[in-house]
Amino acid sequence: MIGFIGQEADEKAEEIDAKAEEEFNTEKGHLVQTELLKIMEYYENEEKQIEQQKKIQMSNLMNQARLKVLKTRDDLITGLNQLLELQIIIRCWKQDFPLDKASVHKAIPMYKIATKTSVDVQIDQEAYLPEDIAGGIKIYSGDHKIKILNTLESHWISQPSR
């Protein structure tokens, strides 16, 4: 009879162990799944923040480009108004040619409205501004007798003012 009670106790202990193991595995699976969802949510939020930062950065770059176009156009109109010539030649950096060309096309109608005269503006494609100039434009009268400099030369930048 003692053997029977011992066997019953062993079977009951195995049953309890099996049930405990099953509950442990179920709870472990639940915890792993919960943590996995938290990790996935964290990385989704990180990805959204990165996308948002990219959009903000792109917007800032677009605004800077728009401001550069407006500044170039304003400088051009100011130069045209200073010359009051019928034919104008512009020199710019080679890499700024497309930007300056677009600015010229938009500035001419504004110039015509302001001065009530027409102007022929050409962008010099044979001679560009040298690399030691940090941007801007040079505007010449058609006969090159009048020159307006709207540039920032690099040697001016590096030397302290006197």
Rank of each mutant, 00 (worst) to 15 (best):
I2S: 11
G3L: 12
F4V: 05
G6M: 14
Q7D: 15
E8Q: 13
E14V: 09
E14P: 01
I16W: 06
I16L: 12
D17H: 10
F24D: 06
E27L: 10
K28G: 00
H30Y: 08
L31W: 07
L37F: 02
M40W: 01
N45C: 00
E47S: 05
K48R: 12
Q49M: 10
I50G: 01
I50L: 14
K55P: 01
L67E: 13
L76H: 01
I77K: 02
I77S: 03
L80W: 04
L83W: 07
L84Q: 14
E85A: 12
E85V: 05
Q95M: 10
S103E: 09
P109S: 05
A114R: 14
A114Q: 14
T117I: 09
S118G: 12
S118I: 02
S118R: 07
D120T: 07
I123N: 01
D124E: 10
A127D: 15
Y128R: 02
P130W: 05
D132R: 05
I133V: 14
I133G: 00
I137S: 03
Y140S: 02
S141L: 09
S141D: 08
K145R: 15
I148L: 15
L149H: 11
L152H: 07
S154Q: 13
I157C: 07
P160Y: 07
P160N: 07
